[in-house]
């Protein structure tokens, strides 16, 4: 065996050994659970050793179930409104912080990001503290200033308002990360470009539209995908604030999965919900990778 061949074989062995722990960890903690979830989704199981194959019955049950359809609709609605409200809001805030940079910019950035690092239980409690009709801040304030129309609104108990109450709290909680992310990207835009734009008479809005937005389109797309995937997996905030109620008004796929598995003992149905979330997330993740490639090439 030649020296070159020996070196190549040694390198291959070395690389394989280096990769082995990561591959083993991925196999045990990611691919095996995914395979098990798929397998379980075709079984009827209470989780107590009574699993029996039942074909597509779990999927048929889910797609014929009002609660699941409501959950599916809610996560897509959540994704839609995240794109329409949270993403532009994040852009607006980050752009304002960059454009009007001053001594308090760093502090403001920390303030905006603070909600993102708070545990969701705390955020949910704060949300209830604000919106609760019995002892909430908003209702108390409305009563104090005699705004009876506002005092009468039941943000958490009214099915038409509950979704928006949770979404509002989520917007506060989740917009911090996009703000930081976009600011980091905006800070990379050379100052000369902005000066040149100003010399050409571009105001703040024109500068944003013609220069900043095109230059941050790639991170915006990534954020959009992250928001969509995050919406599909949504669980903590709606569960903690409303437990998915009133009725099915704030049910998400994550809440349905939890209920099916851990409360109703329907592991098969819970796995089927997990598979639906996985497949939907996969579609958007593939889209993300595809954009990432294109974005990478463009940049």
């Amino acid at each position: 065996m030649s020296e070159i061949a020996r070196t190549a074989r040694g390198r291959a062995v070395f690389i394989s050994l280096m990769l082995l722990p990561a591959v083993a960890a991925l196999g045990v903690f990611m691919y095996y659970p995914i395979e098990e979830t798929f397998r379980l989704s075709f079984m009827r199981s209470s989780g107590l050793g009574d699993a029996a194959f039942n074909g597509l019955a779990n999927y048929q049950f889910l797609f014929g179930n009002d609660e699941f359809r409501a959950g599916l609709a809610h996560v897509f609605l959540w994704a839609f409104w995240s794109l329409v409200i949270q993403l532009p809001l994040a852009f607006f805030v980050s752009y304002s912080l960059i454009l009007y940079r001053n001594r308090i910019t760093k502090s403001l950035r920390a303030v905006y990001y603070l909600a993102n690092i708070l545990p969701s239980t705390i955020t949910a409690m704060l949300g209830i503290f604000v919106f609760s009709n019995t002892n909430g801040v908003l209702a108390a304030l409305a009563r104090k200033i005699s705004w009876t129309w506002l005092a009468k609104l039941d943000f958490i108990g009214d099915p038409t308002l509950a979704f928006w109450a949770v979404f509002f709290v989520a917007t506060w909680m989740y917009t911090g990360f996009p703000i930081i992310y976009l600011m980091a990207r905006m800070e990379q835009i050379p100052l000369e470009i902005r000066e040149a734009a100003e010399l050409d008479g571009a105001g703040g809005w024109r500068y944003a539209r013609a220069i900043v937005l095109p230059m941050i389109s790639y991170p915006l797309r990534i954020l959009a995908v992250l928001m969509i995937v995050g919406s599909l997996k949504l669980f903590d905030l709606p569960y903690l604030m409303t437990k998915g109620g009133p009725g099915d008004a704030t049910k998400t796929l994550g809440i349905i999965l939890y209920n099916q598995g851990f409360v109703n003992w329907q592991y098969g149905s819970a796995a089927a919900v997990g598979v639906v979330i996985f497949l939907l997330s996969l579609v958007f993740t593939i889209a993300q990778f595809s954009w990432q490639r294109k974005g990478g090439e463009a940049e």
């Binding site: 209830i128 609760s132 009709n133 019995t134 002892n135 009468k152 039941d154 943000f155 958490i156 108990g157 009214d158 099915p159 109620g245 009133p246």
Partner: peptide, 16 residues
């Protein structure tokens, strides 16, 4: 059960 019974949690009920 009040004007907004679905906004009232069990802890709220105890306080009432």
């Amino acid at each position: 059960f009040g004007d907004k019974p679905l906004g009232e949690k069990y802890g709220d009920a105890q306080q009432l």
